[in-house]
Structure formats: structure tokens, C-alpha cells
């Protein structure tokens, strides 16, 4: 396979994206490209628009202007209406795994059913094969023993690992992480980071919004600092975290690394 060429293929393209909540413009023309197999981290203070940007990629926020493409296919389609758009976005979203700050596991389903529901219902996967897939994914996140346990019996870190497995079950082309470790107790952050690290090693394309500066520096190919709805600075993570050009970035990192 021609991996060199593939590596430069853009998987996520964000072009001049604007988004307002009422009078407040939270995204003021953002551009970003994530190539296949690359990991991009977005950092920034609360209210900087970084979560809104990530949610826009999954169309959980509807952008006002600009374009977002997943593997060359346009995500936002203002020209489509009603059910036509729903079919389009459902299909797009099956190629995008999303991991939320508050896990959002389905409490009425067991761990394994949380993972297999989408493949069973959306891909019509037979239950037996879905269960095998689910067990394989649970193994991967180190929770095979918890298959038939319900989410409320899991710790925060375990919940987030199941949530990652659930997102992986649809075999997405990219994974989106919206502050995946922000709601966790400090001692539980590492187990989730390890799972994300293993995904990185498997060349999963990832867009990560995070407060974990150390993790972002170690795992990312590219890092972006946002503030006030604009990209203040973006570069290789080694440079961004140790020697940023912009004063705003310096101030943010100083505050964040000291706290």
C-alpha cells in the first residue's frame, strides 16, 4: 500500500468555520486540516470555542458559515432538508467516533450492549458476531471482565474506556475526543490516556480537545491553541508547549502548568 501518499490525505478539513450563539460569536473563522493517521490536539481556556469546534465536526453544533469535510465528504449540507439531511448525517457520523467529557454511556444497557447496539442496529450485524466484536474491543480497553456489568457499577475511568470502545465499534475513520479526561479523578486519567495512546500507535486519526498538556505534547503530531474563537497559534507540539511565539499562549501555559 502506498502509505506515504495516504499519510498526506486530509481526513478532517475545517474551512473558515464561523459559529455564533445569539450575539456571541464563538468561532471566528477557523481553519484546520487533520491528515490520515495524524493526531491534532486543541488546547485553550474555557470559552475559547475549542469544544464547539470539535462538536461542529460531528454536527452536534450547526455551523453558520464555512465547510467541514470528512474524508472528502462535506459534513454540513445547508442545501439538504429534513430526512434527506438526516440520512446523510447518520451515515457521516458512523465514520466518526465521538468521546464525551461526561461519557454518556447508556445506563439501561450493559457494557457489552452499549458497545454492540450501534453495529447490531445500524450495520445489521448478527448478535453473535457483534458480541465477539464487543469482547474484542473490551479486551482492547482492558475491561473484558466487565462485559455484563451496567455502567453505573463502573468507575469514571472504566466508563470512559467503555465509551471509547463503543465509539470504535462502528470502525470509524476518525476519533473525536471532547475533554475525555476532564471529568475524571486525577488517578483515573492515566488509564484513559493509555487507551488513547494505544489508538495513536495504531495510526488512528484523532482530533483531541484536552486540558492534559503533558499528554497533548507527547502524543500529538500537531497542536493548536485557541482563544476567543480564533486560532492564536498552531505548530508542532514540542514547540507550542515549550517555546510558543504568542504571548497569549505563553500566559495560558504558564497559568495552566502552575495550577
Amino acid at each position: 500500500m502506498n502509505t506515504e501518499r495516504n499519510k498526506d490525505e486530509p481526513m478532517i478539513e475545517i474551512r473558515d468555520v464561523h459559529k455564533s450563539f445569539g450575539d456571541l460569536e464563538v468561532l471566528k473563522g477557523i481553519n484546520l486540516t487533520v491528515n490520515r493517521g495524524k493526531i491534532v490536539s486543541i488546547i485553550g481556556p474555557s470559552g475559547s470555542g475549542k469544544s464547539t469546534l470539535l462538536r461542529s465536526v460531528n454536527h452536534l453544533e450547526v455551523i453558520d458559515q464555512g465547510n467541514i469535510l470528512l474524508d472528502g465528504v462535506q459534513v454540513n449540507r445547508p442545501d439538504m432538508k429534513g430526512l434527506q439531511f438526516e440520512r446523510h448525517i447518520n451515515h457521516i457520523r458512523q465514520n466518526m467516533g465521538m468521546v464525551f467529557q461526561h461519557f454518556n454511556l447508556f445506563p439501561h444497557l450493559s457494557t457489552i450492549d452499549n458497545i454492540t447496539l450501534a453495529p447490531r442496529k445500524l450495520k445489521k450485524m448478527p448478535p453473535k458476531i457483534a458480541r465477539e466484536l464487543g469482547m474484542e474491543l473490551l479486551n482492547r480497553v482492558g475491561l473484558a471482565s466487565k462485559a455484563d456489568v451496567f455502567p453505573n457499577w463502573l468507575s469514571g475511568g472504566q466508563k470512559q474506556r467503555v465509551a471509547i470502545a463503543r465509539a470504535l465499534a462502528m470502525e470509524p475513520k476518525v476519533m473525536l475526543f471532547d475533554e475525555a479526561t476532564s471529568a475524571l479523578d486525577p488517578e483515573l486519567v492515566e488509564e484513559v490516556n493509555q487507551v488513547m495512546q494505544s489508538l495513536a500507535e495504531e495510526q488512528m486519526t484523532m482530533l483531541i480537545v484536552t486540558h492534559e498538556m503533558g499528554f497533548a505534547r507527547d502524543v500529538s503530531d500537531w497542536a493548536m491553541f485557541m482563544d476567543g474563537g480564533v486560532v492564536v497559534e498552531e505548530c508542532a507540539p514540542q514547540k507550542l508547549f515549550s517555546n510558543p511565539d504568542q504571548e497569549r499562549t505563553q500566559n495560558f501555559l504558564r497559568k495552566h502548568l502552575n495550577s
Binding site: N58, N90, Q94, F100, F106, L117, A118, L122
Partner: peptide
Amino acid sequence: SNGQYEASRSLGFGHAATIFYIIVPQAFI
């Protein structure tokens, strides 16, 4: 919570399927 709705939609379930598989069962319990 709206997070349940979003999680289901982000997996690729439609609006109606999300109500049927995710929202209503939880509400029923």
C-alpha cells in the same frame, strides 16, 4: 439528559431510533 441523545446521534442513530432505543427505555425505567 441531552448527552444521551447526543451520544446516540453521534453513533449514527437517527432521531426516531434514538428516541426508541435510548430515550424511551430510560424514561420508562
